[in-house]
Simulated scan of single mutants.
Amino acid sequence: MLGDSLSAEYGLPRGKGWVALLDARLQTRHPGWQVNNASISGETTAGGKSRLPALLKQHQPAIVIIELGGNDALRGLALQHSENNLREMVQASKQSGAAVLILGMRMPPNYGSQYTEKFSALFAQVAQQEKTGLLPFFLDKIADKPDWFQADRIHPNTLAQEQMLDNVWPHLEPLLKAKKK
C-alpha cells in the first residue's frame, strides 16, 4: 500500500484506518496475504515514485495499491507531472511482477472545473493505458457525508474507514484471486 494521509491513519487511533481493516478482512477471507502499509501523510506522487523502487525490492509485493495524487492537486502541482509519476509507479510495479490497483481521487469544485475534471481523468487514463485496476473515486459514498470527516474536512474519521475499505474491496478482490497465495 503506497498512499498518503488517507491511508496512513492521519488523525485516527492506530489500527483503526481502512488499511488495518483490510489486513483483518484478508486474514478471514483470503488467509496468507500480508499488508505492508508504506503510506505517509503529505506524500505526493513524486515522493511515492522516489520511494517505490526500494519498497518493491524490500517487500516484493504481489499487488501494489497506489493511493497518491491528492496532495499534488492540493498544492496545485502540474497535472502532467502527477500523471507521469503515477504512470512510472505503475510501470515499476508491473515490472517487478506486481498487479496494480489505482485509487482515484477528485478535488472540490473550488479548484475550477477544468482542473478538477483533468485531475479526476488522469487516474482513469493511466489505468486504461497501463491496463491496471482502478477505483475511480476512493471517497465515493463518503465525500458527501460531512459527519464522516475530521474537523479539517479533508481527512475521513473512523466512521468512514469501513466504507473506504468497502469501496476498495470489489476492485482488489479479483487481483487477490488472480494472484493466489
Rank of each mutant, 00 (worst) to 15 (best):
E9C: 10
E9N: 12
Y10V: 08
Y10A: 14
G11P: 11
P13N: 12
R14F: 10
G17H: 09
W18C: 06
L21G: 11
L22P: 07
L22R: 11
R25L: 05
R25V: 01
G32E: 15
V35H: 15
V35Y: 15
N37M: 12
A38C: 08
S39V: 04
S41L: 09
G42P: 13
G47M: 13
R51H: 10
R51T: 06
P53E: 09
A54L: 12
A54T: 11
L56D: 10
L56Y: 09
K57A: 15
P61I: 02
P61F: 01
I63P: 09
I66Q: 08
L68A: 09
L68Y: 09
G70K: 15
D72I: 05
D72K: 10
A73Y: 12
A73L: 14
L74M: 15
A78H: 09
L79G: 07
E83S: 08
E83G: 06
N84P: 01
N84S: 11
N85P: 06
E88L: 08
M89A: 04
M89F: 05
S93I: 09
Q95K: 03
Q95D: 02
A98Q: 02
L101G: 00
L101N: 01
P108S: 01
N110G: 00
S113Q: 01
Y115V: 01
Y115F: 12
T116M: 02
L122R: 07
L122S: 02
F123D: 13
A124L: 06
Q125V: 09
V126F: 10
A127H: 12
Q128S: 11
Q128Y: 08
Q128I: 03
Q129L: 13
K131L: 09
G133I: 06
F137K: 09
F137D: 08
K141R: 14
I142V: 15
A143Y: 01
D144L: 01
K145H: 08
W148A: 05
W148V: 00
R153G: 00
T158K: 03
L159E: 00
A160D: 02
Q161S: 11
Q161L: 13
Q161G: 10
E162A: 15
M164A: 12
M164D: 09
D166F: 02
D166Q: 13
N167H: 07
L176A: 02
K180M: 06
